[in-house]
Design a protein around this nucleic acid. Structure first.
Lengths: 348, 348
DNA sequence: CCGCCGAGCTAATACGTATTAGCATCTATG
DNA sequence: CATAGATGCTAATACGTATTAGCTCGGCGG
């Protein structure tokens, strides 16, 4: 209790081993360059003292002297440990932690970011970004200005989810929504659907755009391929609109919306997929209770988390090993909500 | 891409504002001591430059110069982001994150700790403990030697769960198992039970000891209060033993064991709690599917997480504000597995 | 005119590591 | 024997901040 016993430093080790601090550092870092040579016996002596004292380098000083930390920052736009157990971001974090451990990295959760203008901000008065060698960004929408600044500062980072350029290419690990949606559309066309409608969330996030692009690209041979926003009205209004224009299959961006549409349709006495097929375009982002096995796709979230660690380490050491922009394939889910349109009914 | 643009430092700010680096530091830290005085206009000038440049202090240098970091380390003996969603440690982390955010602290998950002798080790060749101002220790069993070393080094930490002294008192936030178990025992006695048995897990962890102490202390007026280990045999063997010595109520340390005993009893044609009352002494540590509402208690895990942050910040700034050893009360759970012993049957 | 004081700032240093230029010492070579 | 080169190490410095001793300048009392 009396004297807070000073920490063992390289200087202490040096004194004990009868060498200089520099030598200790050289031994520790296993420098075997032609430039710097240490006699094997000296090396052993130093190592022995290190072992005896249980010395471990101060990671702070190490980092200040411009070496790496083996720490990966994780910036989340929401709490990292959610209450809702079936949370959307959880699998990402699971994958991140798995690979961080594999790479021998610790994880710094930047949870202190204050909320400004309704959004958490990466950059604030005393952000702790620089403690980490680099940072993984997790959130549905990421502020373009902040990405710009990260790029400008040359700070190593990777976004989970595809991002448009922001003053330079943005390293990311995303899901290939475009192709997943396209494949679902093709499946619907094969089953004979000709009048398709896309129900969006009305956001401009890249993830939304990609889905819509996939839809448009694949729906060219359809008789009609409209688009509407789920925010325009409630589920019943939406159903009205869909029926009015003869839609036989609807592609719904948001999972909760799909659930709402399905139950609204059933309340109307419609059958799914008999009268209306419903395809969802992603995993639930909020817990939604439903027993329906929707047709759609699965976002490889855990794998995205893992690969984001890989990409980040590449960005950090500048090796750029492997692409710094990766799109992972989504797995199609054969549900029961995509059927064959009823040929007897021309609902146009 | 060309030149990695050097970071803005206090020296840059100083140059722009026409003052010294020391002045910038003083302004930043709002030093208004009698010792150090800065003219208001100078202060404003510096602050203006800081605002213009968007400067933020380098947390690494800050920490090296022996200030605080506002970073809380979290050492977990298992992955912090578990696959099993109903994981035992999750609520602790939830509480920890909530209060860390409230205190403006970031969270450093020490996940890189290597496994030695079947246990993760806090201290290893390049542990990053010192990056954080202090650390929260999370795990059922914590190595006494490591606690000793933390105490010896004067490193601020707090354990989640009561711990015996280790070369000094160990700061902790634990659950008051002893009194929770005692209250359950008293409830059983009130209902007329006279022959009680405690089924332990055979570990020497403090949490196990506390439960057992609570049992022994409260069971003094019982006719018989035995103890056995769940590890001695399978559930059927255990039931045999219980029946043989006329036990009417069993207190089971481990939740999964309680589930196994209940189903074993039912397979025998016994009713619970008619023929045998079962009380559990804690939340499931591994996911166990069951529909039975067991009588027992609930560990205030989320609150323990929160308070561990509080205690740690107290330990860090030496204020010792509030007790550094806290035991939180558990909430009793009225289940359906504790009944009245059948007076018609003397099962002795 | 001297000494003193307070206000407002700066110079210097510490924190613990990594890196680099360069100093001895020794060996080989002409 | 002078010199060149290799070998093995150290002195010095940088990283960016916090802290402290002390400097300057002006005013004021004696």
């Amino acid at each position: 209790m009396s004297t807070p016993p000073r920490r063992v430093t390289q200087r202490d080790i040096a004194r004990m081993a009868g060498v200089s601090q520099a030598t200790v550092s050289l031994v520790l870092n296993n420098r075997t360059d032609a430039e710097v040579r240490i006699a094997p016996e000296t090396r052993d002596r130093v190592l022995r003292v290190i072992a005896e004292t249980g010395y471990a380098a101060d990671p702070v000083a190490r980092r200040l002297a411009s070496r790496f930390n083996r720490i990966i920052g994780v910036f989340t736009y929401e709490p990292a440990f959610p209450s809702g157990s079936r949370d959307f971001f959880h699998p990402f974090l699971l994958g991140i932690e798995e690979y961080a451990e594999r790479f021998g990295c610790d994880l710094l959760l930047l949870t202190s970011a204050p909320v400004v203008d309704g959004r958490r901000r990466i950059f604030h008065q005393d952000n702790r970004l620089r403690l980490a060698d680099g940072c993984i960004l997790l959130g549905r929408e990421i502020d373009g200005a902040e990405l710009h600044r990260l790029n400008r500062d040359g700070y190593p980072y990777v976004a989970v989810g595809r991002r448009d350029d922001a003053g330079g290419p943005v390293p990311y690990v995303g899901a290939d929504y475009a192709s997943a949606v396209a494949r679902l559309v093709e499946g619907a066309l094969r089953r004979g659907h000709r009048r398709l409608t896309y129900v969006s969330m009305g956001t401009t996030a890249e993830s939304s755009e990609d889905r819509l692009h996939g839809f448009r690209a694949a729906a060219t041979t359809a008789e009609s391929a409209g688009q509407m926003s789920a925010l325009a009205g409630d589920a019943d209004t939406t159903i009205d609109t869909l029926l009015a224009d003869g839609t036989t299959v609807v592609f719904v961006e948001d999972f909760a919306t799909a659930v709402a549409l399905e139950s609204a349709a059933r309340r109307r006495g419609l059958t799914v997929p008999g009268d209306l097929s419903i395809v969802t375009l992603g995993d639930p982002t909020v817990p939604v209770p439903t027993d329906i096995a929707f047709t759609g796709f699965r976002i490889p979230r855990e794998e995205m988390g893992r690969q984001s660690v890989e990409v980040l380490t590449g960005v950090i050491d500048g090796s750029a090993a492997g692409l710094q922009q990766r799109l992972l394939a989504c797995e199609l889910v054969e549900g029961i909500t995509l059927g064959t349109p009823d040929p007897a009914v021309d609902r146009r």
